[in-house]
Design a protein around this nucleic acid. Structure first.
Lengths: 242, 242
DNA sequence: AGGACCAAATTGGTCGGACCAAATATAAGC
DNA sequence: GCTTATATTTGGTCCGACCAATTTGGTCCT
């Protein structure tokens, strides 16, 4: 599934999912490279590269004498994507935590951006907000503009740490949501309120306001996504029953 | 330096630092595996495992035909540690961004924890805060208790996303700070204020207050660390001159 | 029976050479 | 100059082998 077309990636993906599904208890010995090579009918080299990936993910720790499984809680951020993709329907709780985390980081970015923006950058941001307001009706159409605004803020805020985290989160999350075609329905006034508040923030050059606006907006978005997921779960339940 | 004692890790570390030092421009072709094997006087297998690690870090992207260097901005969170360790003195700006990010995540954790805590967990948190208050004078002595409190909050908040991010962040950051022996000096009342506010938050069961307290405290911590780093930079400058 | 100690089997780390398919660079043809 | 066909480079995989560290199992001593 979530693997390139190389054998080592395939092996890594399979083993990764097995670990994420708790098929090995934390601390357990992991099968030896030779055993795995036999199981996957691959060379030891290919297995080794797969294990190297698992080690980078923080899922196993290898030592001469044997590899051991580590707790998922101690893994790297990069396991979140596979974790979301583990089942047909992403774990709603995990999605919720995802968006909650997104929201505080987006808020931080917006706050920093507004506070640090040069006059030209302020104008740029205002322009982007205006463009966004232009097509506040069409969810699909505003998507690129929305992303552009976030990207601009991220560039202005210039916080590498947040940027790297967001890279990982977006890469793992957005892809999943897109693949599933989740289309959250925001309440009518939500977007307008956000845009209005952002405009105020930009005019007053007050990052605090922008951050709060972001957080509030994401809060509503979070609820909308949760609703969409619940709906989806119901529907699929029905289709299973039928 | 920042590598295990295996050859492949050593190669990976060297190449990683070279990329982080911008010795290759983003998009550049990366040397071929055979060339690298010759350069490091190692087998191609070892080089391959090293490259596999770099790929996991998001620093290169390999394809049949050649590997290419990627932008550091598109890398994974795990590059932050090496990035901090690149020079003798960590980049103060980066450290600042680190702590800024820490603060919002810690605030989120504290807020969620207080709001979600069961009665027993509330008692536990109160106890930990009390213990912390007991030795508010000794920076070293309170360190374990401080960590214990954060850990407890993290467990109660039970947000896997934040936890994974914090894992990475802590693993990369705390280690560096410890190694350098950075000892930020907080203002006198800072700790007391935090503890008092936390107590209030716990009594009123109001997570918002706890989150705000965390954020404020980290803000002061951030300034203190910045101060310590500047002091350190000066001192080292003198020692170089002498 | 229990514990300390030593030898054998297992396991990860590395090496060298080999082959394939995809991508690139090079030469040929128009 | 541009396209096309060919040769070369490069990553992906496999095999067989060796070393050093760990683990395991048994032996010996108390």
């Amino acid at each position: 599934m979530s693997s390139s077309n190389t054998i080592s990636h395939e092996i890594a993906g399979t083993l990764r999912d097995e670990i994420l599904r708790q098929r090995y208890r934390s601390g357990d010995r992991f099968p030896s490279e030779r055993d795995l090579a036999a199981r996957f009918d691959a060379s030891r080299g290919a297995v080794r590269e797969a294990l190297s990936q698992l080690e980078q993910l923080g899922l196993i720790r290898t030592q001469p004498g044997g590899a051991r499984v580590q707790s998922v809680n101690a893994a790297s951020l990069a396991v979140l994507g596979p974790l979301l993709a583990l089942n047909d329907h992403p774990d709603p709780l995990l999605v919720d935590q995802f968006l909650l985390t997104f929201s505080v980081l987006a808020a931080l970015t917006a706050k920093s951006a507004v506070n640090a923006a040069s006059p030209e950058q302020l104008i740029q941001l205002k322009k982007l907000v205006a463009e966004l307001a232009g097509q506040a009706d069409d969810f699909e159409a505003m998507q690129p503009h929305w992303r552009e605004l976030l990207e601009a803020m991220s560039a202005i805020a210039d916080n590498l740490v947040v940027r790297l985290i967001s890279n990982d989160l977006k890469a793992q999350f957005v892809g999943q949501m897109m693949k599933l075609g989740i289309r959250p329905e925001l309440k009518k006034g939500s977007r307008d309120r956000l845009l209005t508040t952002l405009r105020v923030s930009l005019n007053k050059r007050d990052g605090e306001i922008a951050g709060q606006a972001m957080q509030d907006h994401f809060e509503e978005f979070r609820e909308a996504v949760g609703e969409a997921l619940r709906f989806r779960a119901d529907k699929s339940l029905n289709s299973v029953v039928n």
